[in-house]
Nucleic acid binder design. Structure first.
Lengths: 182, 182
DNA sequence: AGGCGCATGTAAGCCGTTACATGATTCC
DNA sequence: GGAATCATGTAACGGCTTACATGCGCCT
């Protein structure tokens, strides 16, 4: 059974065959919004997936001292992905550094607390704008309405991202008022 | 400089001095909503914090073959916590297994997809109810209105949790409609 | 007598980050 | 000539999980 990173890579490769380098870049946007990985983690994982016959590669022309390898999922790889998607997900522990920080906000001076919250809020606004721009592109795309198309899944996860960010921005706006008012 | 776990422990101890065992239990609720740790991680971290003079312990009566230690933050520990809270938080990579799964939902049959989303939605509803119950308790507490009191920070983080869960539940409800309608 | 809760620790191993290492092609 | 981009790998280290290990006091 692949690791979570393995399923993330299978999800990427099922959308488009890629080199390891390309996968690393694609891990920024849009997958990077909820999953990230560095190339140093991706290359060994691709090797593991290949040894399990879930992906395969062909050598293509490219730069560099080594061969450039384009990976694709195998039929078994696509099956493994489809099986994993519907397995009952055990609730995994959440970790949120931002909230951990705000949970100790009572130790800070109100002025500094307000500055911190403003910074965090701006960061979420920027992320929200990025999500909205990507979602806008998909809205006109008919493939994003097809439940069996990757773009459908891209659209629904982006929709979730937009809603989550909006809720967070509203919360932080409320929080600024709580800090500011006596 | 302590690790993030170290700041989580300092945040707990600043609210109430505790044994390592007690800290492990408190890591379920309410800190556990955004940060978790097992006792096997907590005991070594307490030792590290103590060697940095950020916490100290007194031996108290208790069960077990070893001495029972009650830890408290030192003045330096409280200062370290207060300093950390307002340092500019670099945006750290997000990881969300649920969203990663839904991002590959296009590979699943609509019926199975709907079942999965229903399960996840129920889980968020349960969590939302727990947050709301805790928040309700704090609403009547005047200390939760005092910006310098730990309960203030507990209240604002719970408020964020409630808002985030509500947004997620609304999203998943929307998603069920998207999957269900032809 | 047995089970549960309190209480503290260590060890093995996985996952992930940062840093080290190499080298070709393309653009300025 | 130099910098950026493409491209693939390895090594060291820290964080976290799972499992191992021990044993007292209380309740049934």
């Amino acid at each position: 059974m692949p690791s979570l990173l393995g399923y993330a890579l299978l999800g990427l490769l099922a959308r488009r065959p890629s080199t390891g380098y390309d996968l690393a870049r694609r891990m920024d946007r849009p997958v990077g919004y909820f999953w990230t990985a560095r190339h140093s983690q991706i290359y060994p994982e691709l090797a593991r997936l290949e040894s399990s016959a879930l992906v395969e590669h062909v050598d293509i022309d490219g730069a560099g001292p080594r061969q450039t390898k384009r990976y694709s999922p195998t039929a078994a790889g696509l099956r493994a992905l489809a099986d994993w998607v519907i397995t009952d997900p055990e609730p995994q522990p959440e970790r949120d550094v931002e909230v951990l920080r705000l949970w100790s906000l009572w130790t800070a001076e109100p002025a500094q607390a307000a500055a911190l919250v403003t910074t965090i809020r701006q960061r979420h606004l920027n992320r929200l704008a990025a999500y909205e721009a990507e979602l806008a592109e998909l809205q006109d795309d008919p493939t994003a309405r097809d439940r069996g198309h990757p773009n459908f899944a891209s659209r629904i996860t982006l929709e979730g991202g937009v809603r989550a960010r909006r809720a967070t921005v509203e919360w932080l706006t409320w929080l600024l008022d709580e800090i500011g008012s006596p």
